[in-house]
Structure formats: structure tokens, C-alpha cells
Design a protein around this nucleic acid. Structure first.
Lengths: 337, 337
DNA sequence: TTGAAAGCGTTACCAG
DNA sequence: CTGGTAACGCTTTCAA
């Protein structure tokens, strides 16, 4: 493997000049730049990351802490991971995976060994045990999710409250006055992931504003619970029933229950739920879809991180950004079941 | 941040001794080891990864090349990623994400800059454009998937042929003499991912051996295509129809089509397909499930990689390992739709 | 069993 | 605008 020394020799300049050509940190005459660049791609030189990190104290690597929760929708996590990784590349950074099963020790390790310059945490919970650690870590950290106490932290997430409002407004606009919200699955509820409360709060706010009734009914992974919830919903609705089902697994079960009762989605009953457009293409949610825009959230998380790294003013930062959610109307493309 | 020099000073030994205590590459007296260890955790010393990489020419990082194919089951990719990352940690390595949208250049970059010591490629296709690159890369590479020409490469994958055989045998044992295979979705078929052919070949082999008939019918993401396939299947079966649907998205559509025709899964019709155990839990596939054991494939891929890194005999290696698939019988837990 | 010192390949400062 | 050189923090060889 050629080194910058080899390049310098080949170009007949000093090693530092090679470095400056690459970094652009000082003016270089057109002539020597050409010479150096020629030597670089003749030798197919690539700078050694370790040496660079050692000398510059910057790894250009961002640690991404991925959750390991079997109950969670793996597909949606992957959407974050994938977008985060490609966005990082756009800012000339790489992504190192930090699995959550290493726990807080893992965070200390990657930061302590200076394997990465900053951390992005996914699936931040209300009272997250990792928070005290990251606060003390002295590197930039971006949270995807809003903990109960976000003070001193940089947080970003989808605007779940807006999503909840969207849903209720959309159904109210369609003429529904009683709307049933099927909760997330218990595994999610129990973890107190903060977005659940925000979403539900959004539905309540919109309900109050519009003078419609919102019923909160338990969800679950078994037909029985949801079946019961559907019973309750149908009993308390006189007109066409309306459902909000934010959890994708539950949407699926709900859809089957409704169709097994002979209710045609979009015709006899309205359902609205969250899904990314691509996924909605494959498994359409009837009527409308809330797009929580995971890709946009991911992109912004990386962008914020890279700005923090750029600035690297080592004082603690604090910010809270909510990415607007959108409703995608899909009624027209709806195929009756 | 404390350095090994600080540790050495605090322990009253040479810097090299600290290094040897950590690496265990030469015998250390109990006494000095104690002193050094005390100093290490008193200073909360952690070795600097960059410096270590520079001196030892080993980063202890493995590049994981993740596919970006929107049509693909994101959830199953995440299962690989997640297991690969935690297994790597067990071998004291980390995982760096390499997104496939960087293409072959990305591989050259991470290896050239010596950001990682080896590469694991996911979703290897029959004629994969990345193969010539990795062959020339001079670092250990492990492929998950079997390309048409695996010479000089280290490959590992689920034994899809065995999976195909399993399915046919299972259905034949249940009394079916005509079995319909619904193909993967076209997006997958078109990429010529090698496992499709292997799976289908497996079904044919078993069919021949057992004297049953296997029908190959087109799959897709739209109801119409699959609906047609179901028509054909029903027309050519006299007894209880049997389906094999390896693609998860297609399973879902198939299931809905069958139930909309009043066919109760497991009772009027047999369906068998692949699913990870967790997913099967949520959406039980009637009769049986083929478990392709992605976690096991992932673990072995990492293990092989780490063995190659250990050995680091720089000659090209070649091996081909198929992880046995299993059939999980789930009939007992089946809830009729 | 231990210590001293020479790299590893960059970056960045100090001169010119 | 460019060159020389001292770090950066570790590993490893050579000596003792």
C-alpha cells in the first residue's frame, strides 16, 4: 500500500504538501496540485484512516446504536439504518454499528477507544438508562426519540402528536364522529416509548377541537384482544365505524378481523394507520396512511450530527426537532377486499 | 484521555509492559500485572483505536455491505445485520456499514483506507459485479449467498435446495400429490438471486424422488397475478390443494386470496412458506414453516471471517458452506382463520 | 521477566 | 506558496 510519503516522492514535493492538497487547508499552486494529484491516482493512493485519526483526532465515523427488541418492527429499523448510513456518506462519514445488547458499556467503549466521533441513538425511551451515560460522554450525541427529560440533549423525532391529530382530522372530515384508536402492541406500550403518548395526546387534542369522540382500545398480538376491541368500537358507533391503528402488526390483524366480519374496508369501515409509502404499496392500509417519514428523520439526524462534529464546540448542546408527518390519501387506489 | 504512557507512569513500568499486559503476548509476572491493571482502571484507560490500528495494522473492524433494494424484505435484512453485529462483538470486532449504493468503489474505499480488515457481503447475486473487485482486494471476504462462479471465494448461505425439498416432502407426507409453487416476486426473480433457483431445484428433485407433481406459478405483488396462479393451481388439483410460497409478501397476498375464496388454511388447503420464527409467531403460517435460519447463517459468516482474520495467511481462500434449513411444525398451535 | 526505542502514516506547526 | 519536523498513541523488536 502506498503512503503519502510515496506520493510526495513521486510528485517531488514534501509529504505535508500532499496532506494539504488532500485537505485543502492551505493554498496550493495549480502546478504542484496537478503533480500531486497525478501521483495520487497513479499510485492509487488512499490515506490510512488509522494514521489520520491518530494525527487529527477525528475518525469520521459515527456510532449508530441500534435497538435489539424482537417485538419491534425490524423492517422499519432497517429503513432508518439504511438511510442513516447513506446520508453519513454524503457528509463523508461512516457508520459503525453499536448493538444495544452491549448496553451503556458499549457506548463508553466506542467513545473511549475513540472508534467514533459521535453517537446516534435509536429508539430512545422515556426513561432511558443510556441517557446519564451519553450526557457524561463529551462527544456529540443525537437521539432519535424524545425522552421525558430532554434537557442538555439533542433530540429529533417524527411529530407523533401531529400524526395523531392528522388521523382524527382526516376521519372527522370524512364524517366520522366516533373514532376508535387501537393501541400499539403491549411490548411497545410497556417500554414507554415516548411517541405512543405523544400520538395519543394528538388524537385527544384534535378530538376536543373538533368535538368528536375518541375511544382508546387495547391492541395486542392476538386476535382475541383486538377482536374484543372491535366489538366495543362497533357497539359504541351508530354510523360507519372508524379505526386508527398506528402499529403495523396490529393493522394486519385488524384488517383480517374486519374482513372476516364481512366489513369492506373503505366502504363499510374506515381505517387509518402509519406506514411508509413503499411499504404501503405492498400492503395497503385502507383509506389513508400516515407517513411518519423515517427517511427524513434519519437524514436530519445525520445532518445535525455532522454539524455538531463540524462545529465541535465541546459544550453541551440542546435542541428538539420534530419532523412533520403527512397523510397520504390512498382511497383512490384502494382495492376492496 | 489517559494514554498507555500515563498508565505506565502510574504503574511504574514501561509503556511496552502495559501493551503486553493488555495483549497477553508475553508472560507478565503476577505482581506487575496487578500494578498495571490497577493503574488501568484507576485512570479508566482505554487504548486508542487509531493508534492501535496504525501500529498493529489491524483495525478489528469488519465491513458489512448491506443491500439497498426497496422491494426486499427489510425486516429480514435487519435480522442479519443485528446478529452479525452482536456476533462480531463476541469476537472482539466491530461492524462498519458499507451501503451498496456506493457500489464497488465503496469496497475499494474502506479496504484501501484500511478502515476495516475484511468484508462481509450480503445478498450476493448470481453474476455479481462486486465479485471481480473483492477478488482483487487482498483482504478476507465472506459472501452470504452463492454466486454462479464461487471459485476463490468464501461463501455461506442457507441451504435453499434442502428447503425446497423439505417443503415438497412435508406436503407429500400430508398426502398431497399435486403441489403448486408460487414464485418470489418479480423484483427478486429479476435480480437472479441465486437462492431462488436452488430452492426451485430442490422442489423438483424431491418431486421426482417422491413421484409427485410440482407446478411452478408466477408470483407478484399484485393480487391479479397470484389470483390467476391460484386459479391454475385449483384447476389442476383434484384433492386438497397445496401451496408453497417462499416469499413473505406473497404469502400474505396468497393468504388473503385463499380466505376470500372461503378456503380455510390448514383445513381446506395446505400452505407452507419460509418465515423467521418471530414473524411466524405473529402471523402463523399454517401447517409448517421453513426456517431458513438467518441468525445461524449470520453467526457462521462472522465466525468464518474472524477465523480468516486470525489466520491472516494472505493467500486466497475458498469454501462453500450451506446451513441446513429446518421445518418447524406448527399445526398444533394453528388457529383457523 | 522487563525496558528502551524505533517505527506505523498522518496532521499541523514553525520557518522560510 | 512550500518544506521540514514534531507530535499522535500504540506495537514490537532488540537488549538486558
Amino acid at each position: 500500500m502506498p503512503t503519502s510519503k510515496d506520493v510526495a516522492q513521486a510528485a517531488g514535493v514534501a509529504q505535508s504538501t500532499v496532506s494539504y492538497v488532500l485537505s485543502g487547508k492551505r493554498p496550493i499552486s495549480e502546478k504542484t496540485r496537478k503533480k500531486v494529484e497525478a501521483a495520487i491516482d497513479q499510485l492509487t493512493y488512499q490515506p490510512n484512516a488509522g494514521a489520520r485519526a491518530l494525527a487529527s483526532r477525528k475518525t469520521r465515523v459515527i456510532g449508530l446504536v441500534i435497538p435489539f427488541i424482537p417485538e419491534l418492527e425490524m423492517g422499519s429499523i432497517m429503513e432508518f439504518v439504511s438511510v442513516i448510513a447513506s446520508t453519513a456518506r454524503q457528509y463523508d462519514h461512516d457508520i459503525l454499528l453499536v448493538t444495544d445488547d452491549e448496553g451503556a458499556a458499549g457506548l463508553r467503549r466506542v467513545v473511549g477507544q475513540q472508534i467514533c466521533d459521535g453517537l446516534i441513538l435509536m429508539q430512545v425511551e422515556d426513561e432511558d438508562e443510556r441517557l446519564p451515560v451519553v450526557r457524561s460522554l463529551n462527544v456529540p450525541v443525537v437521539l432519535i426519540g424524545i425522552p421525558r427529560d430532554p434537557s442538555g440533549l439533542v433530540c429529533i423525532d417524527a411529530d407523533f402528536e401531529m400524526a395523531g391529530e392528522h388521523c382524527v382530522r382526516d376521519l372527522a372530515a370524512a364524517g366520522h364522529s366516533v373514532i376508535s384508536v387501537i393501541d400499539w402492541q403491549p411490548a411497545v406500550m410497556d417500554r414507554h416509548v415516548n411517541y405512543v403518548d405523544r400520538f395519543l395526546h394528538g388524537t385527544d387534542v384534535a378530538a376536543k377541537a373538533l368535538g368528536v369522540t375518541v375511544l382508546h382500545l387495547p391492541g395486542g398480538t392476538d386476535r382475541a384482544t383486538i377482536s374484543e376491541s372491535v366489538d366495543k368500537a362497533l357497539a359504541s358507533t351508530t354510523g360507519k365505524p372508524a379505526f386508527i391503528a398506528p402499529d403495523r402488526t396490529i393493522q394486519d390483524i385488524l384488517r383480517r378481523i374486519l374482513s372476516s366480519r364481512g366489513l369492506t374496508l373503505g366502504l363499510d369501515v374506515s381505517v387509518i394507520g402509519s406506514a411508509s409509502p413503499t411499504l404501503a404499496e405492498l400492503q395497503p392500509i385502507p383509506l389513508s396512511t400516515i407517513d411518519l417519514r423515517p427517511a427524513e428523520v434519519s437524514r436530519r439526524a445525520v445532518k445535525i450530527m455532522c454539524q455538531l462534529l463540524e462545529a465541535d464546540s465541546h459544550g453541551p448542546h440542546e435542541s428538539l426537532e420534530l419532523v412533520p408527518t403527512v397523510i397520504t390519501h390512498r382511497s383512490s387506489t384502494l382495492r376492496p377486499q
